[in-house]
């Protein structure tokens, strides 16, 4: 299943969003990869990400009547996902599992997805180091900065879409993004 990016969403997703929300199977087929990816990047736990993606799509489907069409279905889903990820990360149970499972995330599994990692040993090692630096920096970011950072650089949403998904003003989104980028830059330069 290919990830869904806002740029490559089919035209009918924009033309008939309410109908799209009514068809639950179609909603899952089209949006599961993206919602799951954002949840996975945020929580770093496949089980928790699956649970969030599931809840997100169910909620969107149940509340289809409340969808006003102010934003695209994609942005609306990401808004629900952002709230669910936040609630999930704040729950006490999650805090417990976070501590015990932090080390369970298979870093090798992430690293072997780096495009240049297998090209030649030298560039591969450098790429792994750079991605590792971003990975660690992102983990250390405050919640809002991390959310904005992931929506911008993993989901490739623009600032206005991020503002709609997070409920923040565009200027606040920029401020969070630049702080996050500065933290990431420092880590990447340190890993150079």
């Amino acid at each position: 299943m290919q990830p869904v990016a806002s740029a490559d969403l089919p035209a009918d997703a924009v033309e008939s969003p309410a109908r799209e929300l009514d068809d639950f199977d179609a909603l899952v087929r089209k949006y599961w990869p993206r919602v799951f990816r954002f949840a996975l990047a945020s929580l770093r736990d496949p089980d928790a990400a699956g649970s969030v993606a599931q809840d997100c799509l169910m909620k969107a489907h149940r509340q289809a009547a409340g969808y006003r069409g102010d934003a695209s279905v994609n942005t609306w889903l990401m808004q629900i996902a952002v709230n669910l990820v936040r609630d999930h990360a704040r729950s006490r149970r999650m805090q417990f599992w976070k501590r015990t499972r932090e080390s369970a995330v298979n870093w090798d599994d992430v690293v072997r997805r780096i495009p240049q990692a297998g090209a030649n040993p030298e560039t591969g090692a450098a790429a792994r180091e750079r991605v590792g630096a971003v990975w660690k920096a992102a983990a250390g970011l405050p919640e809002r900065q991390r959310t904005v950072f992931l929506l911008r650089f993993v989901e490739e949403m623009d600032l206005l879409e991020i503002a709609a998904a997070t409920g923040l003003r565009e200027g606040t989104v920029k401020a969070h993004l630049f702080r996050a980028l500065e933290a990431v830059r420092r880590r990447v330069e340190g890993a150079k």
Binding site: Q2, R37, A49, W135, V154
Partner: peptide, 19 residues
């Protein structure tokens, strides 16, 4: 860019199984 590709690849590998 490499971070994005790594996360997307990782997620693609997990997504189907999670679904």
């Amino acid at each position: 860019g490499q971070f994005r590709e790594a996360v997307r690849g990782w997620s693609d590998g997990q997504s189907e199984a999670a679904l």
